[in-house]
Design a protein around this nucleic acid. Structure first.
Lengths: 341, 341
DNA sequence: CTGAAAGCGCTTACAG
DNA sequence: CTGAAAGCGCTTACAG
């Protein structure tokens, strides 16, 4: 079918070796005559030769491909991350294989195994759930991996996350500074460490301001059916604490649903009497809740750090002289957007 | 490093052939004894053997990977398409390599060459711009390709698009039925066939209703800097036709920017005196312009048809008995959402 | 029932 | 300055 090195070599009465050297740019280094080199280039162009990268990868053990596993590529946050990762990876000559786990742990595990069999040089994973069989196997076999968005503190693995506790603290602290005292927290999935950290930021901000933490102001929405769930959660809070005056949302998804709730219940959240804060943004905020205080996730930094750290490990794992790899981690600050009341 | 067939074969004193047959499920077909098969399976499990798919692909010429090239994976429309394509492809055992062209033709060309060198079995491309050197080369060499979103009518290639002309016609027709007469069209990139078709739908609806097409109601926004551009365009239209009463947007992106314009100019677009229609949706419409008439793009159908058609061609191109391939195309209807006034 | 051998298309010591 | 040869890890005719 395609044109191979052999075809060029035969046509020019050279060896595959010579052709390979010339085409891979090692012509001068290997002392191939300028004339021979030109003949090779001309012939390659004439036959429109394109190297078979599968063969090269099989030989070198380097595929120049990284695997990206996300909960869902259609989610705008992950889609932006993917774009950033793609462009950073491309700068270094790497392509991307992408898979969505759909937050199903067995899918995630299957994708990891598949990517490993396809010999990606490393993987960037936003893990789903607490289970982590295949991720552990990767780490144990020194396969280059980087986790982001969520991570497992006890695992010796690269990760990039945001400063969940600190950003949450700052948001809630700002609400307190603006005079709000009955601040509800709306959160989800307590088994996710990320959410724990955000709740901790909330709790610390309150206790630093000597405000008692009221369990009635704690709203936990299960991930499945959260659209319905948030209605009953908010109803419950309003019933238990009628003078609730502010809301801290641990993710933009919950904030959006709550805004819909307020609209349906005829509560004008923008009349100046309410404090609002959310981790991460949504384009709807600008319109629906211009007073929302926001911790913007640093998409670019997450992507560029993820690629940088992963490629470091890949390079080191290809270097026989390198010693034991020490995992690297990065905690990135959010860009805070505070509203004056 | 990894465990190979050879390791298993040596350990069990079998040939690589036998091990390969057992592991690929051809054990019974090849008449390998049940005992031998069990020993192989047990050993593979014990050594946690994972096949090197690169080697398999090099041998068979089948990589079970398809390449997806989009203008940008961070765009919500393309992200949703990608998700759909991924899940359809996965059903058939295919993985996805993804690349964003960023609407730069040379990037698109480079990605096509790269994917070809990486031996993807086929590519799904949302082409950018009119240039098409590498796409032509693919088609000429019978490489399986499917275009979507945009296409080149003169090329013998698979494609999936929506019924641009018809959906536009219906939207504009609906505005006319609701009594609007001075309907502006806001569009972009006239060299894109897609936009031509949408403009044609607009024009046909007007002329079928015997409404003169007023050039002053034609607003064309260049793609670069369209945010600024749309302001001057709309200002011009309002100046030339002060009693303009409706707007047809050929894409949701333009509609969003226009809504911002209306807001800035203090025009209450939702007071019941305006007709609005847009190709494709945006989550902001629900809030900012509840009266927007919308032609919803059929994301699922685009994705599933794209994969189906591409895989057909891949299968046929792997089948030596197959005759010449005849390209397949699909024009999908939009789901129309009409507002009563 | 099982194996020896060739080949997919590269790269890279080794040799001259 | 250039080449013959081995090998990456598979699959698959061919042979017995």
């Amino acid at each position: 079918m395609g044109v191979s090195l052999k075809d060029i070599a035969e046509k020019l009465n050279l060896s595959k070796t010579t052709v390979s050297w010339v085409l891979s740019g090692q012509g001068n280094k290997k002392g191939i005559s300028a004339e021979t080199q030109n003949r090779v280039f001309a012939c390659a162009r004439e036959l429109s030769y394109e190297p078979n990268l599968l063969a090269r990868s099989l030989n070198t053990g380097i595929s120049k491909t990284i695997g990206l596993i996300l909960p869902s590529i259609s989610d705008s946050f992950y889609a932006h991350i993917a774009h950033q990762i793609e462009s950073e990876a491309e700068k270094e000559g790497y392509s991307l294989m992408i898979a969505s786990s759909n937050s199903e742990i067995e899918r995630e595990n299957a994708m990891i195994r598949l990517f490993r069999s396809k010999k990606v040089d490393g993987m960037i994973i936003a893990p789903t759930k607490i289970s982590k069989r295949e991720i552990s196997r990767l780490v144990d076999s020194h396969y280059p991996v980087l986790l982001f968005d969520r991570y497992f503190p006890e695992m010796r693995v690269n990760y990039v996350i945001i400063n969940n506790e600190e950003s949450s603290y700052k948001l809630v602290r700002h609400l307190i500074d603006k005079g709000f005292r009955k601040i509800a927290i709306i959160t989800t999935n307590p088994h996710l460490l990320t959410m724990d950290m955000r709740r901790e930021g909330y709790a610390n901000a309150l206790s630093d301001a000597h405000i008692r933490i009221n369990p009635d102001l704690y709203g936990e929405v299960t991930y499945v059916n959260y659209q319905d769930n948030i209605y009953s959660t908010l109803d419950r809070i309003f019933h238990a604490v009628p003078d609730v005056d502010a809301f801290f949302f641990t993710t933009h998804i919950l904030a959006i649903e709550a805004l819909r709730y307020f609209y349906d219940r005829g509560i004008d959240i923008n009349d100046g009497n309410w404090g609002l804060a959310s981790m991460h943004e949504d384009s709807l905020f600008r319109v629906l809740a211009p007073r929302m205080n926001i911790a913007h996730f640093p998409i670019e930094e997450i992507g560029s750090n993820a690629v940088r750290i992963l490629l470091n490990q890949i390079r080191q794992s290809n270097d026989p002289a390198a010693g034991e790899y020490v995992p690297e981690s990065k905690v990135l600050p959010c860009r805070m957007e505070f509203r004056d009341q």
